[in-house]
């Protein structure tokens, strides 16, 4: 379910590191919790963000959620396709519906995030809480 090569945050963002570059998106759990996504707001290319800062927002009909940057760095690319096809986030959150690409400021930051196994457990725990 949750790709092994990704790193994850407690706020349900994923990060894929590729050398000095990172790709960021929201997880399948997050898209599911939000429901049908209708709008995505992303930062400008060139924006500098710190880990934990707001990167953008994802809106559904009934909810709006902020996306927090898992790591610090400079935004090099945003997925402009999402502005016309926000539904992609529901369809393919881990691949084609990535949100931004970022030039990592500190390669060590990614290591502090959850790995796929830990995140899967974290999500299972969350789901248990919900149904309790």
């Amino acid at each position: 379910m949750y790709p092994a090569e990704f790193r994850y945050t407690k706020d349900h963002e994923w990060l894929q590191v590729n050398g000095a570059m990172g790709t960021i998106g929201i997880t399948d759990y997050a898209q599911h919790a939000l429901g049908d996504v209708v709008f995505v707001e992303l930062p400008k290319v060139g924006a500098k963000v710190k880990a934990g800062e707001v990167l953008g927002t994802v809106e559904s009909v009934k909810a709006v959620s902020e996306v927090f940057s898992p790591v610090s760095g400079e935004v090099t690319e945003v997925n402009s396709e999402l502005s016309t096809s926000p539904e992609k986030i529901n369809q393919d959150p881990h691949r084609s519906a990535w949100l931004v690409k970022i030039k990592l400021a500190d390669a060590n930051e990614a290591a502090k995030l959850m790995d796929s196994k830990t995140y899967t457990e974290y999500v299972a725990e969350k789901e248990k809480e919900q149904t309790a």
Binding site: F39, K62, A63, V64
Partner: peptide, 12 residues
């Protein structure tokens, strides 16, 4: 576009 309204966003 109701997500802009307070009953959903509350303090945001």
């Amino acid at each position: 576009l109701a997500t802009r309204e307070q009953h959903i966003r509350r303090e945001k």
